[in-house]
Design a protein around this nucleic acid. Structure first.
Lengths: 358, 358
DNA sequence: AGCTAAACTGACATCGCTGTCAAACAGATT
DNA sequence: AATCTGTTTGACAGCGATGTCAGTTTAGCT
């Protein structure tokens, strides 16, 4: 049987021994260079790097993980209803993994199942593949059972946008409070005074933080602002029902903020059903700047959070902490409000009044 | 230094040697059982399987790929504008990989770049990680440069929903022609006689096949049916503009079929802009049953294709063909029309007339 | 210059598994 | 019963890297 059919051939076929021979040094010295270990003289480094690039050498991950204790694989854990979010996180994390020569795997957990079930799911995930550590996405980030499990098993992890136990692990997030506050400010600046808010699920920390940031800012701007709240669960349908509830309030909100885009898209539907035009009759603002924000019309004004970058950053933190055992870092990334067609000043406000609120 | 921090420990720590000892056989015999190699007597099989399950043994993929020629990794290749499609394909393929103890990686190619660029992208992907084979998704499936490259390098691949060169490789698909025909039939059965069609990009085989199936059926039903066509590119925005073009035709279509859901969602917007109510004034039918079909209102009537299953099936075909070098199989999976709220009989048709067309 | 400590290098066993090849065994044939 | 053939089984050498540890330079002092 020929060796054809396998791609292994195509991959740079040189081994560490070839590099060592070419550079005129020992195997171990090459290994030191590859792994950026200490005790490598500049001269050695130069020789070896030259040989590596001449031979187009790429270390074999299988051999590395067999010989060493690392697996060169990290895992991404989900329990997220939004495929848009998930997709972006996967892409971002994957990019970072590839850049660092790591593999990525991902798994979904159902964190709402009982704790026995949850723990057996975790068992399965952990046994399933050797993994150097995990990146957790919301709402897993805020599930103490998961965190406890991981710590009990001495497994490294990094959280994306955690809402509880700050400092418990490395984390990368945006300032949800400030971001939601900016949305509130924006709506008020436009002149809105009767405002609706659609919450997310209570086990999703970001939902709480965003609500808090939004409400606090509203209050700090003026005590006269009327706020109506409605419950949601981050899913499209809940946006529809929340919207119908909100729009039947009296006085009716002239603007509604949803704590994610999927629900904001649902609000759009509710407005349509109530024969209200967005943004003329009602302004809508979402959160996430996910795919759906530009898959509906009008395009949603929303808070952009760099999910891909966050996931990539999380992977990097994880790898750094795996290697050097550094103290936990907490990275804050930038958000920004993206103004699109779903928001405008309220109809009855004149441009004079509006200016007064700037 | 302790071994803590790595998960390797947690993964069943028994090795093939433990199993061999426990079963009282040689290493190689255990290996034979694991790999389902021939020349294994029932007695041996029983002893070894028992030992394996008692020890909860799981072979170490790193060691396997180092020793053998397989990498236990397959690649998924994309150049797809629709994240919904992509996401589902990833999930499905991943599921199948995990079930077979394989790793999965995925990469995106920009197939519209020049051929030199394309080939260097392929080089990068192939060199990047050793891979036992690739699963191609549209429109890569119909890009002869990609197919040629893979074959030239003797790399196994399977295509999902290819539109050209049937039999050139193993493939898994649905019958796009019949599926689109069913959509046409459905619309006609409802009583529609003035019908719009939004095409996809011409380099996307499925766009062509679906168009063909739709039109042929329309013609076979009645020569009197009026058909208006508009160009699209499978993206949301193109649905809006195609919709606006179609809706300004005279006579105006009472139903429009889009060759994917994203464009159908765009049609919804166009209808809104033209102050037309869906489905009362215009019925809409999409294709794919992707996430967006239920992220807009009204929910889209659409043709469901089991993308996850198709991807999973593709992985299985790929692995089978890698192992046994079997002849190429072509698997057809089921589709079905999902009737939701975006379609209804045309306003002016009475229920009597409608019945006549059943 | 001479000596010690630190910096660097290399030989070799090892990780867990598969491929090769030869030995052991069983059943069929004479 | 002896031989032959074909099926099962096992011993052993790698796969390509890393970790250990001992050996060799260098640098820094007196």
């Amino acid at each position: 049987m020929t060796r054809g059919g396998s791609v292994s051939q195509a991959t740079g076929n040189s081994t560490i021994a070839d590099v060592a021979r070419r550079a005129g040094v020992s195997l171990k010295s090459v290994s030191r260079v590859i792994n950026k270990e200490p005790h490598v003289s500049p001269k050695l480094l130069a020789k070896v790097s030259a040989a590596i690039s001449e031979l187009n050498y790429v270390p074999d991950p299988a051999a590395r993980s067999l010989a060493g204790q690392r697996s060169f694989t990290i895992g991404l854990l989900f329990d997220n209803p939004s495929p848009h979010y998930t997709m972006k996180a996967i892409i971002g994390a994957y990019r970072a993994c590839v850049a660092q020569g790591y593999h990525m795997r991902f798994d979904t957990l159902n964190s709402r199942s009982g704790s026995a079930l949850l723990s057996s799911q975790l068992d399965a995930v952990v046994r399933n593949g050797r993994t150097d550590g995990f990146v957790l996405t919301p709402p897993l980030t805020d599930n103490r059972e998961v965190l406890d499990y991981l710590e009990r098993h001495n497994i490294q992890y990094v959280r994306i946008a955690p809402a509880i136990d700050p400092g418990r692990s490395a984390a990368v997030s945006i300032d949800d409070v400030a971001a939601a506050a900016q949305a509130a400010q924006y709506l008020c600046d436009l002149g809105h005074r009767i405002i609706g808010l659609v919450n997310g699920p209570p086990d999703h920390g970001a939902a709480i933080t965003r609500r808090q940031g939004f409400i606090e800012r509203l209050k700090s701007i003026s005590p006269d602002i009327v706020l109506h709240e409605a419950k949601g669960d981050f899913l499209f349908e809940s946006g529809i029902s929340a919207g119908e509830a909100l729009l039947s309030e009296d006085p009716r909100p002239t603007a509604i903020f949803a704590t994610n885009d999927d629900m904001a898209a649902g609000l759009l539907v509710a407005c349509g059903r109530c024969r209200l035009v967005v943004p003329d009759d009602v302004s809508l603002v979402g959160f996430d700047d996910s795919w759906i924000a530009t898959s509906v019309w009008p395009y949603l004004t929303t808070v952009h959070q760099p999910i891909e970058d966050m996931a990539a950053e999380a992977v990097q933190l994880l790898l750094a902490q795996t290697k050097h055992g550094q103290p936990y870092e907490d990275h804050m990334l930038d958000y920004h409000l993206v103004v699109r067609e779903s928001s405008s000043p309220p109809a009855e406000v004149t441009s004079d009044e509006r200016t007064a609120h700037r």
